[in-house]
């Protein structure tokens, strides 16, 4: 090889039309991929923008204080009240019942899967949970309204056809797979050495799970329940179908009451002229819902991240 051809090697490569086209394509694709990733930020931005601008007419008309304290929500009545409290309490009732179901069951299941089940058993059982997660919410709604509620009426006196109890229970089952999968991940991330230490001082497996693994995975497990709660708050179809669509400030979960999501569904089903006050009420309700879920999502996210960094 003569020096001349060598000197030009790098230059030749740099001048190669093929490689130059490749560099241009790579640059274009990098920009395209970045746009895809940046789009997610735009989506969040668009959500906030839409919720704020579309609910603005509502907040211009309704004093914010009334919105927070009025105990009635009757936006389409002639004597309209715009208190978010009835929707909010129903939402928290339903989500609270869901958590009351999902928390103990989820803890038992995730401890069982991460500490007791053999890997082969675990691999066989997880698909069941995934199948449960795959059932469309509208199907759960049907099941809650037309199967579980009539059934539960025989055992719970005073349970109305629309109520918060049954949909709350069903939502608990719905978020269970999600909660179990996150908290089991967290528990399995706890180092083996901690478990060995627990066994070495003579703990039983149960003691080890509850006194070592769960405290060790505490922030991860908590994150799972926060994220689960956020899901329950935002869940729509089950409550829209089975909890009724009547805003009702109630302390009794045997009664029906519209949640925030159920209210949005109910209004969307009717004719909702763009720009009317009724139209902007659903965005106001949506804004409240978004803020609540954002709070729980972010807390859950940072707890989870903190947990991951710890191990």
């Amino acid at each position: 090889m003569t020096p001349e051809t060598q000197i030009s090697e790098y230059q030749a490569l740099r001048n190669s039309a093929f490689l130059r086209r490749g560099r241009i394509l790579a640059g274009i694709m990098q920009a395209a991929l970045f746009s895809c990733a940046a789009l997610s930020v735009l989506i969040t931005g668009a959500i906030i923008w839409v919720l704020v601008t579309e609910s603005l007419p509502f907040f211009q008309q309704v004093p914010f204080w009334d919105f927070l304290t009025d105990t009635e929500w009757t936006p389409v009545f002639t004597e309209a009240h715009y208190g978010i409290l009835p929707l909010l309490t129903a939402t928290f009732w339903a989500a609270g019942i869901a958590m009351a179901v999902a928390t103990p069951l989820g803890l038992i299941l995730s401890v069982y899967l991460s500490e007791f089940a053999k890997p082969s058993v675990r691999e066989a059982l997880k698909p069941i949970l995934e199948m449960l997660a795959a059932v469309p919410t509208v199907v759960f709604g049907y099941f809650a309204l037309l199967f579980l509620t009539p059934l539960a009426k025989q055992f719970i006196p005073g349970l109305s056809g629309f109520n918060l109890l049954v949909p709350g229970f069903v939502m608990g089952m719905m978020i269970l797979p999600y909660v179990v999968s996150i908290s089991e991940d967290a528990m399995r991330a706890v180092p083996m050495s901690l478990r060995e230490g627990a066994f070495a001082i003579g703990m039983s497996r149960v003691q080890m799970a509850f006194q070592v693994v769960i405290p060790g995975a505490f922030s991860g497990v908590t994150a799972a329940y926060l994220l689960g709660f956020s899901r329950a708050v935002g869940e729509t179809m089950v409550v829209a179908i089975a909890a009724g669509q009547n805003p009702n400030l109630t302390g009794d979960p045997r009664e029906g009451a519209a949640t925030i999501t159920a209210y949005i569904v109910q209004m969307s089903l009717g004719d909702l002229p763009h720009g009317s006050l009724a139209y902007s009420t659903i965005f106001a309700a949506g804004l409240v819902l978004f803020v609540i879920t954002l709070f729980f999502n972010l807390t859950g996210f940072f707890l989870r991240r903190k947990f991951r960094e710890a191990y």
Partner: peptide, 28 residues
Amino acid sequence: IIEVNVSNLAGVPSIIYGLLALGFFVYA
């Protein structure tokens, strides 16, 4: 920011996406 954002989007209730579509795609 993108990371936090994606994780939050995964938890945004589906009905909020519906409101986004209503306000943004359908009307805006």
